[in-house]
């Protein structure tokens, strides 16, 4: 999809950085802020109870382009939002020097649960209309309230659990399974069964000889995860008032965007979404086979299974000699 603005917008890059962060006025280690990963980790061990997090942000605008362009009354703001708590805080920034804007963004602990998104947005008067959006930061920052290190963890939550143990009632039914995928709610979770002999040893092994088996196992787990996720998502797709499927947002949307191009490669994303729903309702045909294929692509099955087989055969040959 291509977009057109009915007025002049910035072509140059809007850069956004977080310079420092404080939890209740006490600075956190700068190592918890990663510009490369565009992530701030706010969970300091032994400092779990805090009320507010204050981030100092700096935005850099394409100075020359702004000076030469048709824009007046330029304003710059940071926006912190978290979908799950319906927070969208708009914080105007102050111009520090031409092209550089600074400000402080506050997050209240009780208004957030997991990850907040931070972006910068630029507005100006164009063609005599005030406050038109003329630019936003290319990539957003993630403010991760639960992470202890600023690494982008947009992965599926993974937990090691003893499926038969206390506090794992919901997994009791699957106590003899090596893993279980839960794909409902705000966050899908992969549970790995500690009770299942060998799985932890292989997955956590750092021996080179275990690598092929480890990757093949990981690939198999991943394939199942993606299959479950996809199937679960298309069952509960929201529809608009004309009955057409809508993008669901969250992990559901991410799953679709990742897998649809492999499920229906000759359909655009929008068309693929509609088509999936149509096939799901009516004669499914090859849909499930295609989903299995797309899941295998995500799980890199070809590579990992191929390597495993090669290693396995080599080992068998060695033993014969």
């Amino acid at each position: 999809m291509k977009r057109l603005f009915p007025y002049a917008v910035l072509a140059g890059e809007v850069g956004l950085e977080v310079l420092r962060a404080r939890l209740d006025d006490v600075p956190i280690e700068f190592s918890m802020i990663s510009a490369a990963q565009r992530t701030v980790a706010l969970h300091e061990v032994e400092r779990e109870r805090w009320g507010t997090a204050t981030l100092t942000v700096r935005v850099r605008l394409p100075k020359r382009e702004l000076a030469d362009g048709p824009w007046t009354n330029v304003a710059c703001a940071a926006i912190v939002s978290e979908r799950r708590t319906n927070v969208r805080a708009h914080v105007p920034l102050e111009q520090d020097e031409p092209g550089v804007w600074l400000g402080e963004v506050t997050l209240h602990r009780e208004r957030h649960v997991n990850k907040a998104e931070l972006i910068a947005q630029v507005s100006a008067t164009v063609d005599e209309i005030d406050s038109r959006l003329i630019g936003r930061s290319e990539a957003s920052w993630t403010i991760d309230l639960l992470a202890t290190t600023p690494t982008k963890k947009d992965g599926i939550r993974t937990e090691w659990v003893d499926f038969g143990g206390e506090g794992a009632v919901h997994l009791d039914l699957f106590r003899s399974d090596p893993w279980f995928v839960e794909a409902v709610g705000e966050e899908p979770t992969l549970y790995l069964n500690k009770r299942f002999e060998g799985i932890e040893a292989i997955l956590r092994s750092d021996r080179a000889v275990d690598r092929p088996a480890q990757n093949a196992l990981a690939s198999q787990i991943a394939q199942e995860v993606w299959t479950v996720l996809f199937t679960s998502v298309i069952r509960g797709l929201p529809k608009d008032d004309q009955g057409r499927p809508e993008w669901p947002g969250g992990w559901q949307e991410s799953t679709l965007r990742k897998m649809l191009p492999d499920v229906l490669p000759d359909y655009s994303l929008t068309d693929a979404l509609a088509e999936i729903v149509a096939r799901e309702d009516g004669a499914g045909g090859d849909l499930h086979a295609r989903v299995a294929h797309a899941a295998a692509v995500q799980a890199r099955r070809t590579r990992h299974l191929g390597n495993f087989l090669r290693a396995f055969r080599r080992k068998a040959q060695e033993e014969e000699q």
């Binding site: 703001a77 105007p92 209309i129 005030d130 959006l133």
Partner: peptide, 9 residues
């Protein structure tokens, strides 16, 4: 296209 948040803080 319009920053309502800037227009009406």
């Amino acid at each position: 296209t319009l920053s309502l948040e800037t227009l009406a803080p």
